[in-house]
């Protein structure tokens, strides 16, 4: 992943969480272009209308207004152009139904947002190592 610096789309409604992801990326020297959508509808508009370059990775929150993460995933997986994008759920939802629904829609991982920023940094570092291991 490092060589090509693939685009990443963060779908997240909470501005503090968006800021935390940006800070964690910066502290982990993740230089990939990061685009942000505030909910599922906004993300679909950005992807379908090519407002942003097609990302290889989506980091997806579950609980969002207008269209939640699972609804977004269902629609995304039905669209030829979007269905193969790697999706990593990052959420506070510990509900089994959300985990089951997400894995049935073939997310690459379901990550619970850690409560402290230090632990969040560690999670992002783990993700970075995993992304660097994989070809996309």
């Amino acid at each position: 992943m490092n060589q090509k610096l693939v685009n990443i789309l963060l779908v997240e409604d909470d501005e503090v969480d968006v800021m935390n992801v940006k800070r964690a990326f910066s502290k982990n020297n993740i230089m990939n272009p990061l685009f942000v959508a505030g909910n599922g509808i906004e993300a679909l508009e950005m992807l379908e209308n090519q407002i942003i370059p097609l990302p290889k990775i989506i980091i997806l929150d579950i609980n969002m207004p207008k269209m939640n993460g699972i609804e977004f995933l269902k629609i995304m997986r039905e669209k030829e152009k979007l269905k193969n994008i790697s999706v990593f759920v990052m959420t506070t939802s510990n509900e089994d139904t959300d985990k089951i629904n997400a894995y049935n829609l073939n997310v690459a991982g379901y990550i619970l947002k850690p409560l402290s920023f230090e632990k969040f940094l560690t999670s992002v570092a783990t993700l970075k190592n995993f992304w660097q291991l994989c070809e996309m």
């Binding site: 990550i111 999670s123 190592n129 995993f130 291991l133």
Partner: peptide, 11 residues
């Protein structure tokens, strides 16, 4: 790396 990743994600 995989083990760290598998230990981070929920199932």
């Amino acid at each position: 790396v995989l083990n760290d990743y598998w230990n981070m994600i929920e199932f």
